[in-house]
Amino acid sequence: MNDITTDDTPESGAPTRCGFVAIVGRPNVGKSTLMNRILGQKISITSRRPQTTRHQVMGVKTEADTQTIYVDTPGIHIMQKDRNRAINAFMNQAATQALRDIDCVVFIVDRTKWTSEDDVVLEKLSHVQAPVIVAVNKVDWIEDRSKLMAWLAELEKRRNFAAIVPISARHGTNVEALEAEVAKHLPQNVHFFPEDQVTDRSQRFLAAELVREKVMRQLGDELPYQMTVEVEQFRDEGHIIHIHALMLVERDGQKKILIGEGGDRIKKIGQEARLEMERAFDCKVMLKLWVKVKRGWSDDARALKSLGYDLD
């Protein structure tokens, strides 16, 4: 735990502001992309597959007297009978938990596409006292601007939102305007984190997430969601980091897919993950990957907790 400073007035004489901002929405609307854009570096992994984010991931941005603590969350989704697994329940709980004790909410919607899962998110937000800002993402894909304007007017009827801001998280369009809206709702407070800290997550956690990202990006629909990554060894020698990671699947067929013909798939996953880690950690990385079958892990609460899926 980082020590918290008690002086809430910087050298400029202005009082400091600090607050928590939950980024919520249904799966695959761009929550992680937005946080990475705001922070200027990758903290949350991304892919085109829904439910890539499984944990709460905190990102800290400090500018002058203002520190904004963003909490990226798993996509809130409707539980399906054919995938009513413990891991799906965990993701929904993680997203809902992030709405407690926060100062502001950024609710992301995907262009003019409103689904029943957006209704679920909106219903959960009805119990939140903090101001809610809607970020209408991917507006660069909307060619007819009149449709966008009509949709913004429609959103105004759904709730008394603090603001509605059209953005493109991928390209950074209007993201600064969104940040300015968020800043209006941050309370006067001490800064909870050092100025140079950007996340509460460890390098070990990020290493596991980067491996999982490469798997999801490369294999697409070939591999079901029942795959996770456990870092068994993380040894930092200063100039080089040695990482041993285990990719867990539930069936032998999934193991074969991950390894690939003659080991070509696991080799490519390892190469891409290692390069990404070297950029993130700014040093050389030696990465070794293995695949292991652990049957039923995604629907076993005890197994999930042992693998780091723990709301505590």
Results as ranks from 00 to 15, higher is better:
Asp7Trp: 02
Ser12Trp: 02
Thr16Asn: 11
Pro27Thr: 11
Val29Asp: 04
Val29Phe: 06
Lys31Gln: 01
Thr33Gln: 06
Leu34Met: 09
Met35His: 05
Ile38Arg: 05
Leu39His: 04
Leu39Pro: 01
Lys42Cys: 04
Ile43Thr: 05
Thr46Ala: 11
Gln51Asn: 12
Arg54Ile: 06
His55Ser: 04
Gly59Trp: 00
Asp65Ala: 15
Thr66Glu: 07
Tyr70Cys: 01
Tyr70Pro: 00
Asp72Cys: 02
Asp72Leu: 03
Gly75His: 03
Asn84Gly: 15
Arg85Cys: 06
Ala86Asp: 09
Phe90Asp: 02
Thr96Lys: 06
Gln97Asn: 11
Phe107Glu: 04
Phe107Thr: 04
Thr115Gly: 05
Val121Trp: 01
Val121Phe: 04
Val128Cys: 10
Pro131Trp: 05
Val132Arg: 02
Val134Arg: 01
Asn137Ser: 10
Ala150Pro: 01
Leu152Cys: 11
Leu155Lys: 05
Lys157Gln: 13
Arg158Phe: 04
Arg159Cys: 05
Val165Tyr: 03
Asn174Gly: 03
Leu178Ala: 08
Leu178Ile: 10
His185Gly: 07
Gln188Leu: 09
Phe192Met: 13
Leu206His: 09
Leu206Ser: 07
Leu210Arg: 02
Val215Ala: 04
Met216Thr: 12
Gly220Arg: 10
Gly220Gln: 06
Glu222Ala: 15
Pro224Asp: 13
Thr228Trp: 06
Glu230Ala: 14
Arg235Asn: 14
Asp236Thr: 08
His239Met: 05
Ile240Met: 09
His242Ala: 09
His244Arg: 14
Leu246Pro: 00
Met247Pro: 00
Met247Thr: 15
Met247Phe: 06
Leu248Val: 14
Lys255Gln: 11
Ile257Leu: 13
Gly263Ile: 10
Ile269Cys: 05
Leu275Asp: 07
Met277Val: 08
Lys284Cys: 05
Trp297Gln: 07
Asp300Pro: 01
Ala301Val: 12
Ser306Met: 13
Leu307Glu: 10
